[in-house]
């Protein structure tokens, strides 16, 4: 009844799709981390308009669907003469989306550093910048590992919507196979299996990392 040989010849295409998914996720994660950290650090500057701006960015990007954000970039960009390829729109959209979540995670991480430690450092003559660099940042980074790995899993899952703006990743590849072969069941089951194994692997890996961190 279920027979995967019908789509065996598409194995390389599926592999390419998976690679595109992984690549986009990795790039968005790195960009999202950098941007998110930058935003979280900027938000600590005592300048209200900037904080307010950052708050709005985080709330807006976290309060709307990624798919819609991609539509705005990809279909709305041209209104401003911004004509991204689907791939560019995808990476940009995913990075901004991820950065908003990570910025929020980092902010919470900063807030979780006990104020007594900052005071102790100040008493020892640390400058503000040195406190951030040597006291707050290292601790914050350790605190944010679990939510960040969760975010990684979210990114992989969310990336499936890139197919809607025709980024040739795993899901789009699969739906194309379906429309070419009229075989429905096997490709979709395979698709599910692929995502499940990737996310389960990341989940497993992050549990190992977290366990090691707890012991350290």
């Amino acid at each position: 009844m279920i027979d995967f040989t019908a789509i065996a010849e598409y194995a390389p295409a599926i592999g390419r799709g998976l690679l595109v998914t992984i690549e986009i996720c990795a790039v968005s994660l790195v960009l999202g981390l950098l941007l998110g950290l930058g935003v979280a650090l900027l938000a600590r500057l005592p300048w209200l308009p900037l904080r307010w701006l950052i708050r709005s960015y985080i709330e807006l990007w976290r309060g709307t669907p990624l798919l819609l954000q991609l539509f705005i970039l990809y279909y709305g960009g041209p209104t401003f003469g911004f004509l991204p390829t689907s791939y560019q729109a995808g990476v940009l959209g995913m990075s901004l989306y991820t950065a908003a979540y990570l910025a929020e995670i980092f902010r919470a991480g900063f807030e979780a550093v006990p104020p007594g430690q900052v005071e102790a450092a100040r008493m020892l003559g640390f400058t503000k910048l040195k406190i951030v660099r040597h006291i707050e940042l290292p601790q914050m980074l350790r605190l944010v590992v679990p939510p960040t790995t969760n975010q990684m899993i979210s990114i992989i899952k969310e990336s499936a919507v890139l197919s809607v703006i025709t980024v040739p990743e795993l899901t789009l590849t699969t739906t194309r196979i379906v429309s070419e072969t009229f075989v429905v069941v096997e490709p979709y089951l395979l698709l599910g299996l692929a995502y499940w194994s990737v996310t389960a692997m990341v989940a497993f890996g992050s549990r190992q990392i977290e366990r090691r961190l707890v012991r350290a």
Binding site: E158, A160, V178, V185, Y188, Y195, W196
Partner: peptide, 23 residues
């Protein structure tokens, strides 16, 4: 839990919408 936290909703929807008619 592992399955539905690990699968993109989009994929779940594709499967639920397109697979059952084949059965």
């Amino acid at each position: 839990v592992s399955m539905f936290r690990g699968l993109p909703l989009l994929v779940v929807l594709l499967i639920l919408f397109y697979v059952p008619p084949n059965f």
